[in-house]
Design a protein around this nucleic acid. Sequence first.
DNA 1: CGGATCATTGACTGGTGTCAACTTAGGTGG
DNA 2: CCACCTAAGTTGACACCAGTCAATGATCCG
Lengths: 231, 231
Amino acid sequence: MDACAHCAVRESAICHSLPEDRLEELSRYGRRQNVTRGQTLLWEGEDSLLVGNVIDGVLKLSASTWDGCDQTLGIAYPSDFIGRPFGTKSQQSVTALTDAMVCTFTRADFDAVAQRNPDLEHSLLQRTLSDLDHARRWMLLLGQKSAIERVASFLLEMASRLSEDGEDEAGRIVFELPFGRQEIAEVLGLTIETVSRQITRLRCDGLIETPGKRTIAILDREELETRAESA
Amino acid sequence: MDACAHCAVRESAICHSLPEDRLEELSRYGRRQNVTRGQTLLWEGEDSLLVGNVIDGVLKLSASTWDGCDQTLGIAYPSDFIGRPFGTKSQQSVTALTDAMVCTFTRADFDAVAQRNPDLEHSLLQRTLSDLDHARRWMLLLGQKSAIERVASFLLEMASRLSEDGEDEAGRIVFELPFGRQEIAEVLGLTIETVSRQITRLRCDGLIETPGKRTIAILDREELETRAESA
DNA sequence: CGGATCATTGACTGGTGTCAACTTAGGTGG
DNA sequence: CCACCTAAGTTGACACCAGTCAATGATCCG
């Protein structure tokens, strides 16, 4: 299959590091797979039998405590890598937040190809290093920030990832969240009620608008950045 | 120099993946460096000019909020890798918790050697992947766990990293923390007073003893594990 | 002995969680 | 087309955990 050549993330996923002929080798093992919203690809604590690239859609990585509280540990967008190569168990579940398309490999196949292609490993290393940086920045948020700071930070991050076109005619930054309130709460380590209250507060203060349940319009980006840092 | 051949972490740091001759190449760029307790090797937000391996001692990775609250993002033990290769800025500071010895390289030198040695990159990838797993498990703690659960989890993790010999004659697991109370608080996203209160509580409940300020003796590991999970 | 640093304890406050009621939006079927 | 139903979000009242501020206690060291 030459699906890789026309892949939407051909230039941005870790595969970009492979030349044509090596790409063909990899593509023999790959499998394009549709995932429906809510579907879980990998379960926490189970053997990570597959790894892969996100082609389209948004997925979350999550783990839960003994009593069933979920914490979202990361968010995977198109061209992100998911799963745990060279390991045994996946420490987190991977679940689709939207309908999605992923390109999967069995871990064994991927590991073997990676061993033969240092450039692929280098790309994966680069990506893993920035995932680690990102996870650690999120630790600062979870460890130290107040509810309002968390929500403001979250909206700003979402804005930068999801609003391809800058501002609309009214100077607003508008985007559609792939999250419900409960899912936002799980990202931020808060409850759904607290998230709701903080969003209401930001709306009342005139920093944002919420035209639809999952739609956010940022009116005052600067002030929102202030709220993300200080009280 | 043939320091590498006799290095205390020769078999466990990422260098273990290099054969003799390649190791010699790397060693030409490396510099053994003593670090005194409290000294900071890298600053948050500054260009990560150097990277390296921890040979001896314990260091912390940390970041702080605008108002000066510190959050510890990771702990580096002997054979761990520190710094951010292939990047520009270090997202976190690296500070010694104890007097330590590190083996450093300029980032430029290391990047170049890594490019020529896929095995070295593979080791670094493995290590980075497990650092990422570890950071994400910590996110679950910061996002969802109560103070008592955090402290219990912390003590158990420290026990497994620091108590080489199992139990003493009285069946206790004894170890010396490289942390003061304030530093524990920064790891757990709590205040020093809360940490102190929870440790007192565990002592009163007969699960641990604290023979010295920084010494911990675990009396009832099982019960401590229960406290780390549930209320 | 006195001072400095670190840890502990107490009293109080406040932010976030909990529980419950209500609102809104969207979809289905009569 | 509207009534109803359900799921999701919002709002309010209250409780409780952890933060804050302040005082006390323990160790170490000059």
